[in-house]
C-alpha cells in the first residue's frame, strides 16, 4: 500500500508528474513525425531524381544520420545549436540564447527518422509501376499533379508498414532526450526513483508506460493500415 501511495495523484505521490511526463514523451514523438516524414519524402525524391548532384547530397545526408548513434546526434545538435545560436545572437543582438532540449530533440530525432523514412519511401516508389507515370502524362497532368493525385495515394499504402515500424522506434528513441534534460517519462521516473529510493518500482513503471504506448500505437496503426487497404480486393 505504501508503494501505491507513491503513485497517487497529488502532492504526495508522483502520479501527476508521471502523467505529465507521458504527455511530454507523446508530444515530442508527435512533433517529430511530420517534420521527419516531410524531410524523408523529400530525401527519397532527391535520391530518385535524375540530377546526380541532388542524389549524391541526399545520400550523404542519409549515410551520416543512419551511421551516427542517436545519442551522439542528439549531443551534436544540442551543443552545436547552442554554440551556433550563441555566436549568432552575440554578433546580432549582443545576448545569448538558451536552446530548448525539446527543440533539439525534435531536430535530432527528426533527422534520424527522415534518413530511415527515405529508405521506406524509396522501396515504396519501386512498388509503383512506370505505367502510372505514363498514364498521368497521357492525361496531361503536370508533374506536381501526378505526384499529388496519382503517386502519393498509392505510395502511402505501400509505405505504411515501414512507417509504422519507424514510429514505434521513434517513440522509444524519445527516451534518449531525457539525457539532455527533457522531462519525459524516463527522466521523471528517474528523479522519482532517486527521491523515493524505489528504483525498481519506478523504472518498471517506465517500462510499462512504454509498453502501453507501443501497444496503443500498434493497435491504432493496424486500424489505419486496414483503412488504407479497404479498396483492395479481398482474397
Amino acid at each position: 500500500m505504501e508503494l501505491l501511495s507513491l503513485l497517487s495523484y497529488g502532492s504526495e505521490g508522483w502520479g501527476d508528474e508521471i502523467l505529465a511526463s507521458i504527455g511530454v514523451t507523446i508530444s515530442l514523438a508527435l512533433a517529430t513525425l511530420p517534420f521527419g516524414l516531410l524531410l524523408g519524402f523529400l530525401l527519397a525524391l532527391g535520391i530518385n531524381s535524375r540530377e546526380s548532384s541532388l542524389q549524391i547530397s541526399a545520400k550523404i545526408f542519409t549515410t551520416i544520420f543512419r551511421g551516427l548513434p542517436e545519442l551522439l546526434t542528439l549531443f551534436i545538435v544540442y551543443y552545436g545549436a547552442q554554440i551556433l545560436g550563441n555566436f549568432l545572437f552575440q554578433t546580432v543582438f549582443g545576448t545569448t540564447i538558451e536552446i530548448n532540449s525539446f527543440v533539439a530533440g525534435m531536430v535530432a530525432l527528426g533527422f534520424v527518422f527522415s534518413a530511415y523514412a527515405s529508405e521506406v519511401f524509396l522501396s515504396a516508389f519501386k512498388g509503383i509501376s512506370q505505367g502510372q507515370y505514363e498514364g498521368s502524362a497521357a492525361l496531361g497532368l503536370s508533374r506536381f499533379q501526378t505526384m499529388r493525385l496519382v503517386i502519393i495515394p498509392q505510395l502511402i499504402k505501400l509505405a505504411l508498414p515501414g512507417l509504422s515500424n519507424l514510429w514505434l522506434i521513434l517513440l522509444k528513441e524519445t527516451s534518449l532526450v531525457s539525457v539532455i534534460g527533457l522531462a519525459d517519462v524516463v527522466r521523471i521516473t528517474g528523479v522519482a526513483a532517486r527521491v523515493e529510493k524505489e528504483p525498481f518500482l519506478f523504472f518498471s513503471l517506465a517500462c510499462l508506460i512504454y509498453l502501453a504506448l507501443t501497444f496503443l500505437s500498434s493497435a491504432g496503426l493496424e486500424k489505419i493500415e486496414k483503412n488504407a487497404r479497404r479498396g483492395e480486393v479481398r482474397s
Binding site: 527516451s175 528517474g190 526513483a193 528504483p199 525498481f200 517506465a206 512504454y210 501497444f215
Partner: peptide
C-alpha cells in the same frame, strides 16, 4: 516494446 535506456535503468538501478 520498451526503450533500451529504460531497460538498462531497470536492470542497473
Amino acid at each position: 516494446g520498451t526503450p533500451l535506456l529504460a531497460q538498462l535503468f531497470l536492470f542497473y538501478y
